[in-house]
């Protein structure tokens, strides 16, 4: 299908255009930081696009993997002298392995039961990060050493803008490509009907496990980037609320859509900043927006917009 192929590349190119334009336009460290956070959380949400949107499984423990990635960036260089820029890869491997081990038993569960099991996993990781003071610095968090490349310390907000944007582009390109592969089709079959998929000869539990591991790796890399760009990590990053926020980002923008993941995380990162003028009502407004979107646009913002443009151009 040559048409699909060009579509896919067009999306990534358009995204790259936006990234480069923003990189030029954004005037100061504050705006660059906000954009960086959007890219980082979008990367974590992309994992959920695969898990929720494509494979139809729910995870409420995604922030746990975000935490594993973040603490990999903090612990490995401080205690084992690993170069900081290698930590996202090691963190991703650890998260992937953890998701693989834990995923095997819990992915036999369905629906609410799966959600609760992943919730428990997220809580466990968060508890370990909070309580193992000797390793993680406890609730006060710990410092992340700045990566030094060719004698230059990477601490500028603009540097991290480009690093996170490049990671997002690669991540988005991979997810878009996945859609057309056998695995991608198997994921979709799984989402529509598990029974149907297994009748078609798809190894259901193996496919679920693949999606789960992939989502964990995405969250972990995002966590490492967050830790490295902040120069500091705390266990907040692995909290239950953070997991809920990630799922909200995914569902709000449109769980099937790559652009939706980015739009969803952009909304959740930007809204608290815009709403500071009505700080007391921030949570209320945020909640109301989510409820309204879910009632009137149940498939998320981006799919709804796509539908609308289709209807208007018809």
């Amino acid at each position: 299908m040559p048409h699909r192929l060009s579509d896919r590349h067009l999306s990534v190119l358009a995204l790259a255009g936006v990234v480069i334009a923003l990189g030029w336009i954004l005037p100061n460290a504050y705006f660059l930081r906000i954009a960086t956070l959007v890219w980082i959380f979008a990367l974590a949400t992309l994992g959920l696009t695969v898990l929720i949107g494509q494979a139809g499984q729910v995870s409420l423990g995604q922030a746990g993997f975000l935490g594993v990635g973040a603490y990999a960036a903090a612990i490995l260089p401080t205690r084992y002298g690993l170069p900081p820029l290698a930590t996202p890869f090691v963190g991703a491997f650890v998260s992937g392995a953890l998701a693989f081990l834990v995923g095997r038993p819990i992915l036999r569960l369905k629906g609410h039961y799966l959600a609760i099991a992943t919730l428990g996993l997220g809580f466990l990781i968060s508890l370990v990060l909070t309580n193992e003071v000797g390793w993680t610095g406890g609730p006060d968090g710990m410092q992340v050493p700045r990566p030094v490349v060719f004698g230059v310390s990477l601490s500028q907000p603009s540097t991290w803008y480009w690093i996170s944007a490049a990671s997002l582009l690669i991540g988005a390109w991979l997810v878009l490509n996945l859609d057309g592969t056998t695995t991608g089709r198997a994921f979709r079959a799984l989402r529509d009907s598990e029974v149907g998929a297994s009748v078609m000869g798809i190894d259901v539990s193996r496919m679920k496990l693949r999606a789960f591991v992939l989502a964990a790796v995405y969250a972990s890399v995002a966590g490492s980037l967050l830790g490295l760009s902040n120069g500091f990590v705390t266990p907040d990053q692995s909290s239950f609320l953070q997991s809920v926020e990630l799922v909200t980002m995914s569902v709000l923008g449109g769980a099937h859509s790559v652009v939706g993941a980015i739009l969803g995380s952009a909304m959740l990162v930007l809204l608290p900043q815009v709403l500071t003028v009505m700080q007391d009502y921030e949570t209320l407004v945020l909640g109301a927006i989510v409820v309204v979107v879910m009632i009137f646009l149940p498939s998320g913002l981006v799919p709804a917009l796509v539908d609308l443009t289709k209807r208007l151009t018809r």
Partner: peptide, 21 residues
């Protein structure tokens, strides 16, 4: 005054905002 909601990551964002605003 900005409220970080007891989240260190948000605190960092608001700190940058204060300095750039």
């Amino acid at each position: 005054i900005y409220d970080d909601g007891s989240d260190a990551n948000k605190a960092r964002t608001f700190a940058t905002r204060l300095l750039d605003d």
